[in-house]
C-alpha cells in the first residue's frame, strides 16, 4: 500500500518535470520572447503546427500520420531483415571459431561506418526506392543483432555444456538445447537496441532521397525555414521511439519470464 502511494508521488513528480520544461519553454519564448519565433518557435506555435499537421498536407505533401506510416514501413523492413540475418550469423560466430575468424575482420571494418556514409553507394546499387533506405537501416540493425547474439551465446556456462557432453549430446543439440535458450534474453536485448538504432538511422536514410517520411519532413522544414515543423518532427520521432521501445521491453520481460519458468 505504501509503495503504491509512493509510486503515485513519483508519477506526479514525472508529470511535474515534463510540465516544468514545457512551462520554461513557454515562458522563455512565448512570454519573455528571448528570441524571435522564426528562430525558435514558441510552445503555442509548435502545438498549433502539430495539430494542423495531423490533417494538413502542406507544406511537404503529406500529413504527419502519412509521414509516420512511411517511416515505420521503411524502418521495420530494414530492421526485420537485419534481425533475420544478424541473429543466426551472431550465433554461428559465437559457436564456431572458424566462422568467427572468417567473419570478424570484415565485420570489425564495416561496423564503425555510419549508415549515412553508405547512402551514396546504396543509391547507386539499389536506386532511390525503399530499398536504399531500408539498406541503411538494415546495416544498423544487423550489427546490433550480431553483437548481442554473439555475446549471448558466449555467456553460456561451460558447466552446462559439460553436462551436455556427459549425456552424450551432439554439438547441434548442445547449441539448440543449451546455448540458444541461455542467449535468448540477450538476443532480445539486442533486438531492442537494434530497433532503437534503426529508428534513429531513419532520419539519415530519409534525408538522402525521399518524398515522404519523418526524416524527409524535417529536412524539408529545414529547407523552407520552418523550425516549428522541425521540432514537431523531432518530438514525434522521440515519442514514437519511446513507444516502440516500451513495446519491445514488454516482450523482453515476457520472454525472460518464460525462460525462467522453463
Amino acid at each position: 500500500m505504501r509503495t503504491k502511494s509512493k509510486k503515485r508521488i513519483y508519477m506526479a513528480v514525472s508529470c511535474l518535470s515534463v510540465l516544468t520544461v514545457l512551462l520554461i519553454w513557454y515562458l522563455l519564448i512565448d512570454v519573455m520572447k528571448i528570441t524571435k519565433s522564426s528562430v525558435f518557435p514558441g510552445l503555442v506555435k509548435t502545438f498549433d503546427t502539430f495539430l494542423s499537421k495531423l490533417v494538413e498536407t502542406k507544406p511537404d505533401g503529406a500529413t504527419l500520420g502519412q509521414h509516420l506510416l512511411e517511416s515505420l514501413k521503411v524502418c521495420l523492413l530494414g530492421y526485420s531483415i537485419g534481425a533475420i540475418l544478424g541473429i543466426p550469423l551472431g550465433i554461428a560466430m559465437a559457436w564456431n571459431k572458424w566462422c568467427d575468424w572468417l567473419v570478424r575482420p570484415v565485420f570489425d571494418l564495416i561496423r564503425p561506418v555510419p549508415g549515412l556514409a553508405w547512402t551514396p553507394m546504396f543509391i547507386l546499387i539499389f536506386g532511390i526506392g525503399i530499398e536504399a533506405k531500408a539498406m541503411v537501416i538494415f546495416v544498423n540493425s544487423f550489427v546490433a543483432c550480431i553483437l548481442n547474439a554473439y555475446t549471448g551465446i558466449r555467456q553460456t556456462d561451460d558447466l552446462h555444456l559439460w553436462v551436455g557432453d556427459v549425456f552424450g549430446a551432439t554439438e547441434w543439440q548442445k547449441l539448440i538445447k543449451i546455448a540458444i535458450p541461455t542467449a535468448t534474453p540477450m538476443i532480445f536485448t539486442g533486438l531492442r537496441t537494434a530497433l532503437g538504432g534503426s529508428w534513429m538511422a531513419l532520419v539519415a536514410a530519409e534525408m538522402l532521397a525521399a518524398s515522404k517520411g519523418l526524416g524527409y519532413m524535417i529536412q524539408q522544414a529545414r529547407y523552407i525555414s520552418r523550425p516549428d515543423l522541425v521540432i514537431v518532427g523531432m518530438l514525434t520521432i522521440g515519442v514514437v521511439g519511446l513507444i516502440l521501445d516500451t513495446i519491445l521491453h514488454k516482450i523482453e520481460i515476457m520472454v525472460a519470464k518464460g525462460m525462467n519458468a522453463q
Partner: peptide, 27 residues
C-alpha cells in the same frame, strides 16, 4: 526521485538522432 524527474525527459530525447538536432544546434 531523481529518476522520476529525469526519466520521462530522457526517454523522449533518447530516440532523436543527432542528425535531427542539427537545425536546433545551429540556432
Amino acid at each position: 526521485l531523481i529518476e522520476a524527474i529525469f526519466a520521462p525527459l530522457f526517454r523522449i530525447i533518447r530516440p532523436i538522432p543527432p542528425i535531427a538536432w542539427i537545425p536546433i544546434s545551429i540556432i
